[in-house]
Amino acid sequence: MSIQNLRERLGALKKEARNLIENKGSATWTKEEQGKFDELMDEAERVENQIEAVQRLMDNEAEDSFRDAKKKERGEKVDPAMAAFENYLRKMGNRLTPQELEAIRNTMSTTTGSEGGYTVQPIVASTLIEALKDFGAMRRQASRVVTTNGSDLSYPSTDGTSEEGEIVAQNASAADADVAFGTVPLNTFKFGSKVVTVPIELLQDSNIDVVALVNGRLRERIGRIQNRMFTTGTGTGQPYGLTVAASVGKIGATGQTLTVAYDDLVDLQDSIDPAYQVDGLGWMFSQAVRRVVRKIKDTAGRPIWTPSYDEGMAVRRPDFLLGQPVEINNHMPAPAANAKSISYGDHSKYMIRDAMEVTIFRFEDSAYLKKGQVGFLAWARAGGNLLDTNGTKTYQHSAT
């Protein structure tokens, strides 16, 4: 079965499950109806796993054979900086004309040129950084700030949840209540792509969009490591991850090292201060947690999970849990003793900082050329931290 057929099958299963929920409304569910819903969700999970396996196989084949190499659009206008970057990617150093070398040096910093690398212009760096959200849930949900360099930075934060006004008598003076500002560190860390090798034939093929090809490989690798660090980073030699910076809103009862109960999810929602109970709240957890929570029923036996489906396969719509959207992030911890496996709240309170200092190295020594390849390595600087711990809370499993 093709991956398209699998996706259509998944959409049909989710649609049937959603219709079952909508048709029952607020009525109490029978055991047969609960069983039917669980069967649909079990089958949906099997299809999702199959889609993931097929996609992973396709990605691995594309990685090995470069079958995903895009063709250049004819007649497309190219920015001079991007043209110089393309020449840098395509041509051996000894084959660049004096004019091409000058263009590269004029448009790309030569601070590392003696070692074969260049700190690329912001217009080049942005093509790499902007697409990183495709490789991680954190960038899809978090806020973002861009700086021109990676110097240490303290970002202002404030907590106004306990502030309150007053009643003032006639001719009396208003009381002072200065806003208390704090700071959270938003320092950057250097993320490396590891060396990406590209066959010389592809670099020599003028019909191949080599910029998209190389950038695609680099950002996949950097995107994945950044998402993991923004999720679980310790703050020591790496960013403060969401699960480390966020406070715990609910701890599971003894025995819930691998499970979560309906009441736990309700309590986690209610642990968010009413001041934050506005649009933008949502859940974040891994597929391992999804297997647990999407079979939970409320006191009337109704599923608390509302599956969504992509009508026409054109728009990605999240599933809902207790009325709020779910973002799947497989770097969130799996259920385990003391693990913070679920996050709920306003995840835009997490701030990602990107420094536009992206350095790219080209390797064309004998270790690569004897295999008919050229190597590329990117360094990108980024950091992250949760600016307001009141806006996001986590569920922590019991210790025993």
Rank of each mutant, 00 (worst) to 15 (best):
H397N: 08
G136M: 05
T234A: 09
M108G: 01
Q121P: 03
L258S: 13
K295M: 07
R219M: 06
F85G: 03
V120W: 02
G312R: 03
T259G: 04
E8A: 14
G237I: 01
V78L: 06
Q226L: 14
T400A: 11
S286P: 01
P307R: 01
R90K: 08
R74V: 15
L387K: 11
A337H: 06
V289A: 07
R105W: 10
R224A: 11
G383F: 05
T389K: 09
V124M: 00
L218M: 03
L6H: 03
I208H: 02
V326A: 04
S341G: 04
S206H: 13
F85N: 07
E311T: 14
G116I: 05
G235I: 10
T232Y: 06
A27Y: 15
S114H: 04
R217K: 05
M284R: 08
E39P: 02
A53N: 13
M313Q: 15
T188H: 07
P199Q: 04
D270F: 14
I225L: 12
R221P: 08
S247E: 14
R144G: 13
E201N: 14
R67D: 15
A169P: 07
T243D: 02
M138I: 12
M229S: 15
N390F: 06
I360M: 00
R381E: 09
L101C: 11
Y276G: 00
S65V: 14
T236C: 11
I272M: 02
R46C: 06
I352Y: 06
S343H: 10
G375L: 05
M41Y: 08
G345C: 05
P335T: 05
F230R: 04
I51S: 03
S2M: 12
G312W: 03
V266G: 10
R74C: 09
N19W: 13
I3M: 06
T257D: 04
P335S: 00
